[in-house]
Design a protein around this nucleic acid. Structure first.
Lengths: 146, 146
DNA sequence: CTCATTGCAAAGGATTTGCACTAAT
DNA sequence: ATTAGTGCAAATCCTTTGCAATGAG
């Protein structure tokens, strides 16, 4: 039950900002980093409860806000009506494939998209800060099953 | 105050599906098509009230759902916490630039992105149905003002 | 000790739903 | 006449906030 890479980095971040390192904060960070699938606030709450370390809803949201602000976690929105969170890990900018049948998410990187989006923004007078691409479709498993 | 292109098409859609053509439905369609800026449900409600043709919130949402299902209107989400709607008009698939300072939205088309997203999906075993790209940045006007 | 965090419960904003009433066909 | 739509208000869902009790530094 040693700290994950994310919770270690979060600990450092909190210290550097003179913010208390609490077990709740570390627990939330650990759950986010332990999930392969992008977690929603509700899923994080359930995982913590299931592990006997229940954390209040407000604290979960407040911690997620901190994690996002620290740059350690990315906030995602796949149009489901709520947000999902994923560790920023070593993937600085990446895109998502979302299976509209089972909700599976596949990530991938593509340098061309990064460059292209910057150029597209500039050609319309914008200074690009980031972009978000989600491709919707049906994954191989679901296509086979149908 | 004759029907817009959108409300005319909506009328046809409703007839073809044996759904009643009501003044509320046409009014919502007209407001959506009359706005250059993508409208939120709330903005549509205000516009209708301001025009002396107030429509109940529930009806607005139910009508927007119909318009989306008909393919005449597209639902958009710029991460503001609510959805926006825009007439599908003659722009089949297009991308968005979102100014993080003033909220302005600029639309543009790019065939390469369409083709690229299909290929990217296929290379990961997905059958693409659609994609959504939003580039976040600062528009020329806001950059100048800062 | 002092000040920030926690958790609960209440508040909020967007969207949905139940239901008596009204209108379209 | 039938059948579906409308509007209101209550209900839901996700997220935020107020505040007394608690814990970190």
């Amino acid at each position: 039950m040693d700290g994950s890479a994310l919770s270690d980095a979060f600990r450092v971040y909190l210290r550097n900002h003179n913010l208390p390192v609490t077990p709740q904060r570390l627990a939330v960070a650990e759950v986010v980093s332990s999930r392969e699938r992008h977690a929603s606030a509700d899923e994080i709450a359930r995982a913590l409860s299931a592990g006997g370390r229940a954390v209040g809803t407000a604290t979960i949201y407040r911690t997620l806000e901190l994690l996002v602000r620290s740059g350690l976690v990315m906030e995602r929105d796949f149009g489901e009506g709520f947000k999902r969170y994923e560790s920023a890990r070593g993937m600085p900018q990446h895109e998502h494939l979302f299976c509209t049948t089972c909700g599976a998410v596949v990530e991938f990187e593509d340098d061309r998209l990064d460059r292209m989006s910057t150029l597209l923004a500039e050609s319309h007078g914008f200074t690009r800060s980031s972009h978000r691409l989600v491709i919707y479709g049906v994954c191989a498993a679901c296509r086979r099953a149908s």
